[in-house]
Computed example of a mutant assay.
Amino acid sequence: MSKIVAAAVAVFAMSGAFAQDAVVVGLGAQDSSCGDWIKARREQNKLYQLSAVLWVQGFLSGMNTARKADQMINLPASSVIEAMLDNECANSPTGPLFSQSLVMYGKLRIEQGKKPDLLR
């Protein structure tokens, strides 16, 4: 029994060491700016555009999970997200895509007759 406990402790200790060296890959606040979005649109980089729209859709879905059902928003179509990113990023080309996604979420809430606050 003590060998099992010792093995479990060793595994947990090693997993922490590996986690510190883990590479985190993602599209988000630290990775992507409106300048990246504008460039991708200009160069017709469909892969980047799709990745960004999918990230925003996931973000909006995640924001919905923090709400009661009657306060969730209806998620917009991809083409609407693209148009909103075009508009928001034109106003703030150096801003992170994450910030523009928050702005988008707030605007969608207001358009859909929900409370404008983000976390209620």
Rank of each mutant, 00 (worst) to 15 (best):
V56Y: 00
L97K: 05
S51P: 01
A13E: 03
G16F: 13
W55L: 06
I4P: 00
A83I: 09
L47S: 12
A19N: 04
S99I: 11
G16Y: 06
V5H: 06
I73E: 03
L50D: 14
T94L: 05
V103H: 08
Q20L: 14
E82F: 06
A17V: 15
Q49K: 14
Q71A: 12
P96C: 09
T65P: 00
E88R: 06
G95S: 14
F12P: 01
K68P: 01
A8C: 02
G95C: 06
Q112Y: 07
L75Q: 08
N45A: 14
E111I: 11
Q44N: 12
E43Q: 13
F12I: 15
L102T: 09
K46Y: 02
A83P: 02
S51E: 10
V56R: 00
V24C: 05
G62T: 01
V25S: 08
L97N: 10
S15R: 06
A13R: 05
Q100A: 13
W55G: 02
Q44R: 12
A13F: 13
Q71E: 14
Q71F: 01
A10C: 09
V80E: 15
R109Q: 08
C34M: 02
G16Q: 12
A7H: 04
I38K: 11
S33K: 12
L85R: 02
K46F: 02
A66K: 14
I4S: 12
